[in-house]
Design a protein around this nucleic acid. Structure first.
Length: 206
DNA sequence: GAATCGATGATCT
DNA sequence: GATCATCGATTCA
């Protein structure tokens, strides 16, 4: 396994980080000890107070506080009462920003992902397993207990009960670079091309 | 295959 | 009380 991405990777402009995350490997050790990994194929960049679609757009609140903190931590929240979304905090400490991980292509632990999703591993497509932020969190067994978990080595683990470990590794990006498109499922700032995808995969949401 | 719609709870006004 | 960075079941074709 190559060297994990370190905190300095995330301590940069949110859009730059989002672009460069496409193709990286996401490896998750669940609270149950199961290990799964996927290649990131779809992300969205959410900036701070100048991005109307961002949870940080109205300044610091109990929920958005994590986005203003140091980079390389998980921001996990519940949406529509039933789905979790995984974000990675970006920018320097004090500046808000995060990248939403919207889809991964399963690389290992496919059977465990299918079991967690309640699908038959034989007939489920990669897209069924982990395309879409809610599906992805389900397949990776991530819930809001993981909020605030460090995703990079060298930081003190927050030792949240019932959580595991997330690590990211450099990977092969798309040949022509990631493609920028409008973000999905939002109402504000829909003109911004801040969704980045690997166009060569069938494992995309939306 | 495309369109529609309900579930369900934290967050913010 | 309205909103929401979603998903899956259902309906119609």
């Amino acid at each position: 396994m190559p060297t994990p991405l370190r905190q300095i990777f995330f301590a940069r402009n949110t859009i730059t980080v989002a672009r460069e995350l496409v193709g990286c490997l996401l490896q998750v050790t669940g609270g149950d000890g199961g290990v799964v990994a996927g290649r990131i194929v779809e992300v969205e960049a959410y900036e701070g107070e100048n991005d109307p679609a961002s949870h940080a757009s109205r300044g610091r609140t109990p929920r958005s506080e994590i986005m203003f903190g140091p980079p390389g931590f998980a921001y996990v929240y519940l949406i529509y009462g039933m789905h979790h979304c995984l974000n990675i905090v970006t920018e320097a400490d004090g500046t808000a920003g995060a990248v939403l991980v919207r889809a991964v292509e399963p690389v290992s632990g496919r059977e465990l992902m299918a079991a967690r999703r309640g699908l038959d591993p034989g007939s489920a497509s990669d897209r069924d397993l982990s395309a879409g932020p809610g599906r992805l969190c389900r397949a990776l067994a991530i819930d809001r207990n993981w909020n605030g978990l460090p995703l990079v080595p060298g930081l003190p683990d927050s030792e949240q009960p019932g959580t595991g470990q997330i690590r990211l590794f450099h990977g092969e990006g798309p040949p022509g670079g990631p493609v920028a498109t409008p973000r999905i499922g939002i109402r504000r700032a829909t003109d911004r091309l801040q969704r980045f995808i690997d166009p060569s995969t069938a494992c995309l949401s939306g």
